[in-house]
């Protein structure tokens, strides 16, 4: 991609993207290949934090903060609770993969080839415009509370139902 650099492309942004993206891909590969459940959770933190950094790079500050609060904060604690409560072996665990796990490799590679072909075919030369500063949170709230109000209410009910369902399922008696 750097070979196509010309005057209208911000080189620093591309370098920053690569610096953030490379550790994310490596961490994701470790996440699906490690033999240690707790390490997998920590690799997931790397991916999620990198994702938040990329949101900032794409001028979506509010989503980046939500990502850190919800994922790196709440969801990771939930995952660690899940690992501890199910008493997964702390340390190496040999039974983490299915017997036929190798079938996943051709599936993932073929899917990646297909997706990359389509993406490169469709967006080969599309440049993202310079955002010129962060997206105002005001605009997001205007969107949530007027055109997307019905989905917002639906999500409120889903969260309520999920909270009640999780409590009912996980109660001792």
């Amino acid at each position: 991609m750097l070979a196509q650099v010309n005057d209208s492309v911000n080189v620093a942004q591309n370098v920053g993207f690569a610096v953030i993206a490379a550790p994310m891909v490596v961490a994701a590969l470790f996440l699906v290949s490690t033999k240690n459940v707790v390490h997998a959770a920590l690799w997931l933190v790397v991916v999620l934090a990198g994702m938040a950094a990329l949101y900032v790079l794409a001028a979506a500050e509010f989503v980046a903060v939500s990502q850190v609060l919800v994922y790196v904060g709440a969801v990771m604690v939930l995952f660690l609770f899940g690992i501890m409560l199910t008493r997964a072996q702390i340390g190496r665990d040999v039974g983490l993969n299915n017997r036929g796990w190798a079938i996943g490799i051709p599936v993932a590679v073929v899917l990646l080839g297909l997706l990359s072909y389509v993406i490169i075919d469709a967006y080969e030369d599309t440049k993202l415009p310079d955002a010129g500063g962060p997206t105002p949170t005001e605009a997001i709230s205007d969107g949530v509370l007027s055109p997307y109000l019905i989905p917002f209410l639906a999500i409120s009910f889903i969260l309520l139902a999920a909270a009640i369902g999780a409590i009912v399922l996980a109660r001792k008696d």
């Binding site: 911000n10 699906v32 690992i83 299915n98 993932a108 030369d125 440049k127």
Partner: peptide
């Protein structure tokens, strides 16, 4: 930045996630 930067990274992470769902046996890892 090019749009393909973001879209290709998304595709790579998606495929790694699909591999994880297929390969893992532990429900938390899935």
């Amino acid at each position: 930045m090019f749009a393909v930067n973001f879209l290709l990274l998304g595709a790579v992470l998606f495929c790694i996630g699909v591999f994880g769902v297929i390969a893992r046996r532990n429900a938390v890892m899935v």
